[in-house]
Design a protein around this nucleic acid. Structure first.
Lengths: 342, 342
DNA sequence: TGTCTTTCTGCACACGTGTGCAATAATTAT
DNA sequence: ATAATTATTGCACACGTGTGCAGAAAGACA
């Protein structure tokens, strides 16, 4: 049987309450007994029961994190940022991946509620608003990350996708491109829309018209879908000279498709990504992209949540807090000036 | 305040024991009252407290998973395999990343023990054996994945790296290569060693001698290190015609370095990876590699652990169980016959 | 010496759930 | 109608921890 504070109490000849206080660092207990108890606890290999503790204190010191998919390298960096902040404050992470699956989503919410997670960070842009509201309704503090249904949530951290997209567009315009196209991801909702809007905004600003045929969406951001995108754009009577991909994963697939089709990048076609995942530096050619401050985004989200946990009053209030972080343009070799004769 | 079974009891006019039994599906309770209680529980939005439950039942229905790093795409597929098996059996996952950091490792073990995880799956090849033993000593069922200090653990699932490496070597030999080199990862311990041994074994079998200078190790498998590997091999007086990289990440960096150095793959140099991560299909050229059955590995590991949880007797026993899975060769375009004049 | 602080510790209850046992109600057998 | 059986429910305790309150011990002061 696993040993408890009662066992320590028996061994040291004090009551279990004294043990509880001593281990908790309560100054009421004399230094002598505290030291003794601590030593015995150490010797016996005592491990407190999180379950019993949280049952009594009504807090678990665990925060739940919901992501789309674990194997998306984009999320993993956000997780680092969250983890660092959480660990520093003595919190552990309960990570769950929704996998774009409604049943899984329901299970996750169910589990988080039963586990009495102290709070939840939703990093899944596709996570259904219903489920999120369910958490809120049950009194869970919720912080959303890069989730654009902000009207539903009071606390959010997100990246300024409109600005990021504008930076990329500006870069392409400066290189001399006019026939710029956007390859979006219909599954990604607002995120894809914002990036599209940034593109449109900057083009309007520069007074360059966008060919309506230059806006195309695929259903997801798996690299495989890049091929569909390329196929579409190359079959247009008037081909674009630059493609802005929704994100790096898609861009990587797109670059690969270019290579298979013997389309030279950046000579024949400039390509950009979005996010700056690790592997985007190793594509051929290395991808020009927008570097999202992923770590900071995660870190800020965790800090905001921790703040909410500190003063629980705020949460019931109708206070509203959001933070917008901007990324920075990262020029590598997948972009260059268009050929003269185009 | 959150509602409990007592609230439901008050509302339905029965005792809380009856509610507990009804919700638990105990057949002692009449169908009528069970239905009634279930309905009321639903209406009131009752969510059982995992903490209270596990305090009483002495099981948490949570299994801990320790990985090296979340952003390694290799682990994420293993996680899928684990998750599917776990979820089907009503278990949730508590995932933690050690990040090759000793302090983090200690924290993880601490947390798992306090949370009273029902069992632990260690997927981190670098995880210190001490910490693993600590878990065992505290009565946690442990299954290790691709962890080669098997002498310490009774239950393990792993991939046959020796065989995999032999398959790759055989492939290169069949293409006509004789000057084959191995780029290892010193941080990866036995895994890298097994792959090296498979290489040696197959070469011996074919009666081809290995130039001792053709075995080189870097400290890690970040793509960036591929450059160091290339630099080393290209400075040899007698260059190899094929390089077997420890894994895909390293191979991706290696390919990138080749491109920068204007070395054509596979014409000038054949390159292989190991693991078959998603992005290995999108490199330039697409990488020939060994497809590890990652999902199956994870799935089998979870099933083994679940089996252990079923009959706890086995665990105290000195029974020993291990399962070895084999991968399959995946030929893409980074390998070809060596040039005639070499 | 007695009283009043101050310092320290134990008693008893609580958190939300599960379960053995006894008690009650309903049904059947005699 | 009574006894015996079965079906259904409640009582009371337990899991491991934390905490208000009272009580004991020790020292300070009159």
């Amino acid at each position: 049987m696993r040993i408890t504070i009662k066992d320590i109490a028996k061994r040291t000849g004090v009551s279990h309450s004294t043990v509880s206080r001593a281990l908790g660092g309560n100054t009421l207990i004399s230094e002598a007994t505290t030291d003794c108890i601590r030593k015995v606890a150490q010797e016996m290999g005592y491990q407190p029961s999180a379950a019993a503790r949280s049952l009594k204190t009504n807090q678990t010191k665990v925060i739940g994190v919901i992501v789309n998919s674990i194997d998306d390298p984009f999320f993993s960096e956000i997780l680092f940022g969250i983890e660092d902040a959480a660990q520093q404050a003595g919190y552990s992470l309960f990570i769950a991946a929704s996998q774009y699956d409604l049943i899984r989503e329901q299970n996750i919410v169910q589990t988080m509620m039963e586990q009495r997670t102290d709070g939840v960070i939703i990093c899944s842009s596709s996570f259904s608003a219903d489920k999120g509201r369910q958490l809120l309704a049950n009194g869970f503090p919720v912080v959303v990350v890069n989730y654009k249904a902000n009207e539903n949530f009071n606390y959010s951290i997100y990246h300024d996708d409109v600005d990021g997209s504008q930076q990329l567009t500006r870069h392409l315009l400066a290189l001399g491109h006019k026939k710029i196209a956007y390859l979006g991801n219909s599954k990604s909702g607002r995120t894809s829309l914002d990036r599209l809007n940034g593109f449109k905004k900057e083009m309007r600003k520069a007074g360059v018209k966008i060919n309506p045929a230059y806006i195309f969406e695929v259903e997801g951001s798996e690299p495989e879908l890049g091929k569909d995108g390329l196929h579409y754009f190359m079959n247009l009577p008037d081909r674009p000279t630059a493609i802005m991909c929704f994100n790096d994963m898609l861009a990587i697939g797109f670059l690969h498709a270019c290579q298979q089709a013997c389309i030279r990048v950046p000579e024949d076609l400039s390509v950009t990504g979005f996010d700056n995942i690790t592997l985007s530096a190793y594509t051929s050619p290395p991808l020009s992209t927008l570097d999202q401050p992923k770590y900071s985004i995660g870190n800020e989200a965790a800090q905001l949540l921790l703040e909410l946990l500190g003063n629980k009053i705020e949460n019931s209030n109708n206070t509203h807090k959001e933070k917008v972080l901007k990324g920075s343009l990262l020029v590598r070799n997948s972009t260059s000036a268009p050929l003269q004769n185009e």
